[in-house]
């Protein structure tokens, strides 16, 4: 009886794993794991760990050197620093939100905005001095950075992006 059962099981050959199938599966799986692994390692390799880029945080000051109602165009960090009359400071990115060109401060302004505008030379986007879009193709307002005051200097970090109502620091 037992022998017969064995033979019957053998005929149900779909469930039997032969030595060849076993090694085929092991081999294919191992190759797959190695391929996926090398893909991951290569992707990791392509992403540099050390960047020789300028630090994101920088200082501007001392405060009395910043004229009231003036704009500093910090070309190195691509940031405009504004001082408004009563002694309030804020920082706006000078990188256009459309395709990343460098915008310029235009003190002459445009019609309806005589206080001056921020204009992009590449595709003609125009922003007001708070960074809001006045004229496309820019899809959104310029980034505003958190400004802190430390030891009579402004500290700005271009990683700390804040909303318009939180960007102004008063001294």
């Amino acid at each position: 009886m037992e022998d017969k059962d064995k033979i019957n099981n053998h005929n149900d050959s779909a469930k039997v794993i032969t030595r060849r199938d076993f090694f085929n599966k092991i081999g294919t799986t191992a190759t797959g794991v190695v391929l996926l692994g090398s893909l991951g390692v290569t992707l990791d390799f392509l992403s540099p760990n050390v960047l020789l880029e300028i630090p994101k945080e920088f200082k501007i000051g001392p405060l009395e050197n910043i004229q009231p109602d003036s704009v500093i165009d910090n070309a190195e960090h691509h940031v405009f620093i504004f001082r408004e009359h009563p002694g309030s400071f804020y920082a706006v990115s000078s990188i256009c939100t459309h395709l990343g060109c460098n915008t310029k401060w235009n003190p002459a302004g445009i019609e309806g905005h005589p206080e001056g505008v921020i204009a992009c030379p590449c595709h003609g986007s125009i922003f007001d001095k708070k960074g809001n879009v006045l004229h496309g193709p820019a899809p959104r307002s310029l980034d505003r950075f958190l400004v802190r005051v430390e030891n009579d200097k402004l500290v700005i970090n271009t990683d700390e992006i804040v909303s318009e109502d939180k960007m102004i620091v008063k001294v």
């Binding site: 392509l46 992403s47 540099p48 960047l51 020789l52 880029e53």
Partner: peptide, 13 residues
């Protein structure tokens, strides 16, 4: 973009 530029801005990489 980071992989293409090898960083956050255009440079040596």
């Amino acid at each position: 973009r980071f992989l293409l530029l090898g960083g956050n801005q255009i440079g040596d990489y």
